[in-house]
Design a protein around this nucleic acid. Structure first.
Lengths: 226, 226
DNA sequence: CGCCCGCTTGACACGAATCAAAAAGCGTGG
DNA sequence: CCACGCTTTTTGATTCGTGTCAAGCGGGCG
């Protein structure tokens, strides 16, 4: 039921919750800190555990038989994973950084469920538009804005509207999310840096210096200089 | 509220239902036959009318500011449109052939709603995988199988497993669904024809001659000869 | 310190887009 | 019934954006 696999198949992170009927007030139990690259559940596995991300980042993904991977969503604090996956998970879920999860009771209020479903659907459909019709720079700009919304510090930069956030996904993760290759993502980030729209320090601390212009690029209204 | 536009801006198809409070047992009223290319609702419009497709085909789509269009889903008999679009529609919906709709009451049983949501999510996520990681021939093969599932006649061909269905979307519609161009879709269909996997008669009657092999191509397990 | 892993950058290849034109449908009307 | 004009589809030639392959670079961690 609770099937979590540490990076290389170690012990489950919530061992005490594996016992049957241990779900009393389970929704308020806060789990331990999961290390990066922990499989929360695997594509095709039975059962649909549901969690809320308290802190950190989780990626849900599907994989084709020949290994091509597509990240379906990147999920930050406050959002749910495992909703609507049916009795067999259609996605695997993996932590991208140190992450704290919180089990969520299966019975939610109808309004809450609908809200959560509608949000997931909206995000999925936005990703469809991105993958179907946007160019590589547009995709990367869109991704950065999405991540800023999910992980952006409320404390903003001195510059007008600048936002800083911790970049959980690697270039490879971004590529698998955006339907690109690692190299193309890297090139687009370099171009955005050169254009003065973003800044990346210490490898994973991103600052959007001009979210306005970035939105223009993301929407296809404004080209990005080569 | 009910805002339907005939192909070139004629009278609304459900004129009698436009009156306020006329929604008594509305869920069991079957509307008239809508002609092809009827806008059922527009992206960004207020209100979220919900319908069930009784017969025919509806496409939900989003459009970028510069006109790039992405079809989010093609919807056949039995399925719902308008669910989870919030108070402002995120999609426009348009009929692709003569189509009969049935209004659906806003209050569905929780299980029914969840079921519908889960199906839409699953389809959207499958489209994400298709757009992010599949090649053009794989996309076209996947699309044909999907359409066969939605529109395939229960009466199957004499050949083992062959399925025939009416192809509602044009090449352009398929392109906008699959993140390709009209020409690429046409070329892929030609290659599938030449490979003996499908047959197209009268322009819009498609027969899948070997769904098995087609599935192999759709999943990326088997290449398609040039 | 030095290995290792993730990232960047460059050269080239390839798949799909674009541009262009011919062919095939299809309804209309003679 | 066939000729006509329009739309959609098919096919071809070429271009362009990403993918692929291959080195370097750099920072973190043992």
């Amino acid at each position: 039921m609770l099937q979590m696999l540490a990076p290389h198949g170690a012990t489950p992170p919530f061992p005490n919750l594996s016992a049957p009927l241990a779900e009393v007030r389970i929704s308020q139990v806060t789990g331990p800190l999961l290390p990066p690259r922990t499989m929360v559940f695997r594509e095709g596995s039975a059962g649909t555990p549901q969690y809320r991300v308290v802190d950190g980042c989780v990626a849900t993904a599907q994989t084709l038989s020949d290994g091509r991977r597509q990240i379906i969503d990147l999920i930050g604090p406050g959002r749910l994973i495992g909703l609507g996956f049916g009795d067999r998970n259609r996605c695997s879920a993996e932590t991208l950084g140190f992450t704290r999860l919180e089990a969520v009771s299966e019975t939610m209020a109808q309004g809450e469920r609908d809200q959560a479903f509608a949000e997931m659907l909206a995000r999925s459909q936005a990703l469809v538009m991105l993958l179907g019709r946007k160019t590589a720079p547009e995709r990367v700009a869109s991704a950065l804005l999405d991540l800023a919304g999910q992980f952006g510090r409320p404390a903003r930069d001195k510059r007008r509207g600048a936002i800083t956030f911790h970049l959980y996904p690697t270039r490879g993760d971004l590529a698998d999310w955006l339907g690109l290759t690692l190299e193309t993502v890297s090139r687009c980030l370099s171009r955005l840096k050169k254009a003065g729209l973003i800044d990346i320090r210490q490898g994973d601390l991103v600052t959007l210096l001009d979210p306005q212009k970035l939105s223009g690029i993301a929407a296809g209204d404004r080209p990005l200089s080569p």
